[in-house]
Amino acid sequence: MILFPKFFKSLNYAFQGLGMLLKENNFRIHLLIFGFGLLFGWFFDISVTEWLFVILGNGLAIASEGFNSAIEAVVDLASPDFHPLAKKAKDIAAGSVWITAMASMICHIIIFLPKIINFVESLL
């Protein structure tokens, strides 16, 4: 049985979390890059497959930034003072964000660089 009041309460918590993420600088940077990906995708009329890579790549980078922020908050709560294991957890989470961001960037380059080159060549 589906409990809709419980679902809507959970949805409210999710939107509260998104509101908190919007205050995070790196999250806003990922959103800006996603916006450029959407704009370039529209401008260059990319294929469905290319759209999937742009949306999935950016979605993973944005989600990993959210996981990173959550891990940092929990680590700060559990270890307010410096501890090498706290640093390790935070650094590994940040490194994971970097991995997804680089994968997303590589997708953008593979999809958009040839289109940008063709566009510039058509102007010359």
Rank of each mutant, 00 (worst) to 15 (best):
28 R>H: 04
18 L>M: 13
26 N>T: 09
55 I>Y: 01
68 N>M: 09
6 K>H: 12
88 K>N: 06
32 L>P: 00
38 L>D: 01
89 A>H: 10
65 E>W: 10
68 N>Q: 13
38 L>Q: 12
25 N>M: 10
5 P>G: 09
100 T>Y: 13
32 L>A: 10
99 I>H: 11
39 L>V: 04
88 K>I: 07
38 L>E: 03
44 F>I: 00
22 L>H: 11
55 I>A: 13
62 I>T: 12
55 I>N: 06
32 L>S: 05
83 H>E: 03
26 N>C: 06
23 K>C: 08
18 L>W: 14
98 W>K: 14
87 K>G: 11
99 I>W: 14
42 W>C: 02
19 G>W: 12
22 L>E: 04
5 P>E: 05
94 A>R: 14
48 V>L: 10
76 D>K: 06
52 L>G: 15
12 N>D: 02
14 A>E: 05
89 A>R: 08
82 F>V: 00
7 F>G: 00
82 F>W: 06
57 G>C: 05
7 F>T: 02
14 A>S: 09
90 K>P: 10
11 L>K: 14
96 S>G: 14
64 S>T: 11
44 F>D: 01
18 L>R: 15
58 N>K: 06
13 Y>E: 05
33 I>P: 02
6 K>T: 04
58 N>A: 02
47 S>A: 05
49 T>L: 05
54 V>S: 11
